[in-house]
Amino acid sequence: MTKPIGDYIEIISARSTDQEILKRSQDGGIVTAAYIYGLENGLLDGVIVADTTEGFKPMPKIAKTREDILSARGTKYSLSPNMSLVKDAVKEHALEKLGFVGTPCQVIAMKKMMQYPAAFRGTVNNIGLVIGIFCMENFPYNGMKTLIEEYAGVKMTDVLKTDIGKGKLFVYPKDGSEPIAIPIKETMPFEQKSCHVCMDYTSEYADFATGSVGSPDGWSTVIIRNKRGKDFIDKMIAAGKLETQPLDMESKFGFAMIEKLSTDKKTKNAKEIEHRIEMGLPVPY
């Protein structure tokens, strides 16, 4: 078994210091804060974000301003093909320092592309930052729609935000009423099948990875994985854009929780991979 959460330089808890970001961010608003800081300070000149279109359908977007980014805050739990815009961003948008955020699988794709830039010649040099998010599994849009409309009884057009935590999927309606909770067990049949052979929970190939697990409410865990990620986070801290605290290494809800969830995912999916190999099914690993 590989290391549970991959290689890293440093691991911290952090949150944005910008109240406007925190107001509607998923947890600590790390991705939003990093992107806005990057754009405003010339470290990035454009970023790819997962925005939502009508009916809470995720759709990637190239954002170049603070407003663009703020409108795309929050986790979508449904597929947003962010990689599909990378080439457009570098070509007709002429971006030279592109910021990218993605799920572990998208980060793997990005890193593969950077290693073997077939058909992406000239594109990979213009990637300025790769942020990964923690991801246990994802839902196809129609699966998500069935869950939210059938189980929670909320129309997709009325969804403000979704969140997974404490073993439940919470659906926040736009009218401000109480969130509706769906137990995770109920959601499992709607998961993407390909997520069941994924061996990456914490975006092990990103410059830095972030997610809520391991940190208190309103904070995010940030796993800094390489020098580029470290430099970026250090600059943000120095500029007062991030508030940090050491990660809880003692209790079972801190670092241990990240390790546990990651190990769980890897163990479970390793079995699925074995099973698929036995059945003669393709496994992309």
Binding site: E92, H93, A94, L95
Partner: peptide, 12 residues
């Protein structure tokens, strides 16, 4: 197939 953005035009 595609037009360019104003930013790209400035760079060109």
């Amino acid at each position: 197939a595609k037009n360019i953005t104003p930013e790209a035009k400035e760079k060109l």
